[in-house]
Simulated scan of single mutants.
Amino acid sequence: MGNLIRKTITIDDKIYKNIKRINPKANFSDIVRKALSEYIENMNIQEALNLKGTWQNDIEDSVKFVDELRKDNGRQIGEWSNS
């Protein structure tokens, strides 16, 4: 765990009562830390899913670029051209 900070939060009383009902010995800070960690993980997953497919055109263009580089255009192996 990194450095800790103290923050004041406001939550619905029903949420707090449900936490205490489910686990009367629960450490509220631990529960909030776990909930926020899960939230961050879910948001990171959602962000990655939102990127799905956005690189497809870049990949196709990159393949075409590399294929062009691999063409010898009549040159001998090891022969370089400045053109």
Score class of each variant (00 low, 15 high):
D61Y: 12
N50M: 10
N82W: 05
I31A: 08
S62V: 07
V63A: 15
K52D: 00
G74W: 00
F65M: 06
M43K: 15
I45M: 06
S37L: 11
N23P: 06
M1A: 08
L4W: 11
Y16G: 01
N73Q: 06
Y39C: 08
E79T: 00
L51K: 08
I9V: 01
K64R: 11
G53H: 13
F65P: 05
G53Y: 15
T54S: 02
D12K: 12
N44W: 09
K34L: 09
V32F: 02
E68S: 14
K34R: 09
E79L: 00
F28P: 05
N82I: 10
M1F: 12
S83L: 11
L51N: 13
V63Y: 10
T54N: 08
D72H: 15
L51Q: 10
Q46E: 14
I77C: 10
T54H: 12
A35L: 04
K25F: 13
S83P: 04
G78S: 07
I22W: 09
I59C: 11
D30G: 13
D67E: 11
I45Y: 07
N82F: 10
I5F: 15
S81P: 01
T8L: 06
F28R: 02
A48F: 09
K71T: 00
D72C: 13
P24S: 12
S83K: 14
A26I: 07
T10V: 02
G2E: 03
E60Q: 08
R33H: 03
Q46F: 12
I40K: 01
D67G: 08
Y16V: 05
S37N: 10
M1K: 15
K64I: 10
K17Q: 05
E79R: 00
I5P: 01
R75E: 00
R33N: 06
Y16H: 10
D72G: 09
S37M: 12
E38K: 03
I40N: 04
L69I: 10
L36G: 09
E68F: 14
E60C: 03
S83W: 13
T10W: 06
G2W: 15
I31F: 03
D67P: 02
Q56K: 11
T10H: 10
R75T: 01
N44V: 07
L51S: 07
E41I: 02
A26S: 06
A35N: 00
E79Q: 08
P24L: 01
D12T: 05
I5S: 01
K20H: 02
N23F: 02
N44T: 10
L36T: 00
E68D: 07
R33S: 06
R21K: 08
E68P: 02
